[in-house]
Computed example of a mutant assay.
Amino acid sequence: MEGLLDILDYDGDIDELVSGGRPVVEVVGGRLQNLVGQRGATLEALQELARLAVFRQTGSPSRLLLDVGGYRANRRKELAAVARNAVEKVKEHGEPVRLEPMSAFERKCVHDVVNAIDGVESESEGVEPSRRIVVRPAD
């Protein structure tokens, strides 16, 4: 990541940590939005490249999570609100709610929120890049 920032002539600091047993690399600094891209698409691609680089060095797959400019933390909060809103609709109307297509990271955030609430359940359906979550009343 440091090499990429140098090539792009971006100023950013890199923090490495472990969260929930998962390696996390955070790039912090100003004017990093281009590394996030529209709805995090560039960030997802950079994360995949970082995982491939780790695999090439170690021979083992990595669950590395890359965050740039706090995007994932902010997005996690937005997705929690989306999940709670879907749960409210399901509880109010008793009908399943289909959410917009999301990345694997986004779907996990929504599943985590929904799974913590009694009376509802969630599952993913469809195929990438149109994979989405359906929130429904629990059986």
Rank of each mutant, 00 (worst) to 15 (best):
E44S: 15
E44N: 15
S124P: 05
A53I: 14
L17E: 04
R22V: 15
D6G: 02
G40M: 12
S19K: 08
E78S: 12
M1I: 12
R107G: 06
R84A: 02
V120H: 03
A83H: 03
D139E: 13
G40F: 08
I14R: 02
L4W: 10
D112Q: 10
L79E: 00
A86T: 02
G29F: 08
E44H: 15
S122K: 06
G30S: 14
D67V: 09
G119F: 07
N115Q: 10
E128G: 01
P101K: 14
E100M: 08
V28K: 15
E128L: 02
V120A: 09
D13C: 00
E106F: 00
L65R: 04
G3Y: 11
D6N: 09
L52N: 10
R31W: 03
R76Y: 08
G119W: 11
S124A: 10
R63C: 03
L52W: 08
L52V: 11
F105N: 05
S124Q: 09
V134R: 04
A80P: 02
T58Q: 10
G69T: 05
A83S: 06
G126W: 09
R63Q: 11
A83C: 06
S60E: 10
L43C: 13
L17D: 02
E106A: 01
P137M: 08
L35T: 06
E125R: 14
G29E: 07
D139C: 02
R136V: 01
S103C: 13
G119V: 12
V25N: 11
G59I: 12
R132K: 04
E92W: 08
H93W: 11
L65W: 06
R98H: 14
D13P: 00
L79F: 00
R131G: 00
E128F: 01
G70T: 05
D13N: 06
E100R: 15
V87P: 03
R39W: 06
P101E: 11
G119K: 14
V127N: 03
G29V: 07
E106L: 01
Q38M: 07
K77P: 00
V54C: 11
R131W: 00
N74Q: 14
I14T: 01
S60H: 14
P129W: 01
T42M: 13
R39E: 12
P137C: 04
L52F: 13
M102I: 09
G29W: 07
K89D: 06
L5R: 06
A116H: 12
E121P: 04
L64G: 11
